[in-house]
Design a protein around this nucleic acid. Structure first.
Ligand SMILES: [Mn+2]
Ligand SMILES: [Mn+2]
Ligand SMILES: [Mn+2]
Ligand SMILES: [Mn+2]
Lengths: 220, 220
DNA sequence: ATATAAATTTAGATGATTCTAACTTTGTTG
DNA sequence: CAACAAAGTTAGAATCATCTAAATTTATAT
């Protein structure tokens, strides 16, 4: 079985598990762009090789082996994204598609060498954590801007769902990771927030956007 | 039609045409690690898409389109090899296998960015020429050490067939591209040469090796 | 709790790349 | 130039990832 296919299935399962909790065949099919019967037959084969546990009509479960393998692919993906942004001057909205292909290159040395010249970063350009060589994640940002109060000062640390539409929206607003944000107003009607940061003195973000911005609270 | 399959066929055909002159199905099969009937059926399909001309029992011919496409894949391969050696500290014997995979990444920008940070090199780490964006090769080294005379001084510029066995043999002899070589003796019996360069004062190379070293003659 | 909707599974098929075995054509050599 | 060797072609089949259509199971809503 082509390693690439296996790797893409495992990675998607890992991300679904992380973010939805349980892995449905329909969700996997949607993310991988294949039909549900295709998922079904692939999952059976992945079970034969010990990556997942499959039981009829039950959610798919990753084995520990499968989860570790998936984390290592995500490690490669995120190291590549960081390398492209830091060393090859790509924008954070340009790197995902390239990383999607490069994560399948069969060379441990390549990724370890990139990791090394980057200085072993712990987060990728979108603030997502980079798993270590054992597939473990040490740090992650989980406090959302939408949970903060008027007057709070926070630093933008990570994004939820870094699709390029969202990244280009943030580019337009000149809002980058590391920005120091002050919350000046919260509209109780719809939860939209008015904030200031850098040169921008009054920018209003919808609740939808605020829920996708992970922040770190600065000492008050 | 998986792009990767097509690209590997075209690249192999280009290299065979360059080294042998005419493209035999058996040679293609040997290089790609597939059977001759497999080559036969693939070549027919490549013809349908305009990359080659196929006639029963005749050597395979690349079209101009196919030749250009092949050159562009070789361009990517050689840029990657140069990048790995120059920017990620790989040895020249370690980079071919990685480049073999990376050349198939679907991003013009990635390769152009690597080319840019390298300063648009004209040769790869083995001295092979890097085709330009139009698939044209401007410079190439073709004078062999085996053609030189006793007393000649030359600079090592490129290798013929850079397989890793050969590269590691050269590593052991501390013989690198750019080395300034003086020919001190030629054994007429078998054509082996005794040369000096760098710290090495008397190294003997077989005729077989000398035929694989491209040099540039230094002003006499 | 029954009807309806949603999700999953099975069955059967397709296109891509590959193989081996058998056959045909071309090249070489005495 | 006839015989044999080498190279190339055809036939037929396997595997893999994928699909659609139909059947089955589980979940939801009156
Ligand atoms: Mn990504
Ligand atoms: Mn991928
Ligand atoms: Mn190479
Ligand atoms: Mn290749």
């Amino acid at each position: 079985m082509p390693l690439k296919t296996k790797e893409n299935y495992l990675k998607s399962m890992y991300l679904i598990e992380e973010h939805v909790g349980t892995i449905a065949a329909s969700e996997l099919g949607k993310r991988l762009g294949v039909s549900v019967p295709t998922v079904n037959s692939m999952v059976k084969r992945l079970q034969d090789e010990g990556w997942v546990v499959y039981q009829k009509y039950k959610p798919i479960k990753l084995t520990n082996l499968g989860r570790k393998e998936a984390a290592l692919i995500i490690r490669k993906h995120r190291i590549v994204e960081m390398f492209l942004v830091e060393k090859l001057n790509f924008g954070w909205e340009e790197v995902h598609e390239i990383a999607e292909e490069m994560e399948h290159i069969h060379s441990e040395a390549l990724f370890e060498r990139m990791d090394e010249v980057l200085g072993n970063p712990v987060f990728d350009p979108h603030g997502s954590p980079i798993p270590d060589r054992q597939g473990k994640i040490h740090l992650r940002h989980s406090l959302k801007l939408s949970e903060m109060k008027v007057g709070d000062k926070v630093k933008l640390r990570a994004l939820l769902h870094s699709n390029s539409d969202f990244l280009m929206y943030l580019n337009n607003k000149k809002l980058e990771l590391g920005a120091e944000i002050t919350i000046t107003h919260i509209e109780s009607f719809d939860g939209s927030m008015t904030i200031s940061y850098g040169e921008e003195t009054s920018v209003t973000l919808s609740r939808e956007v605020c829920e996708r911005l992970f922040v770190e609270q600065l000492n008050v």
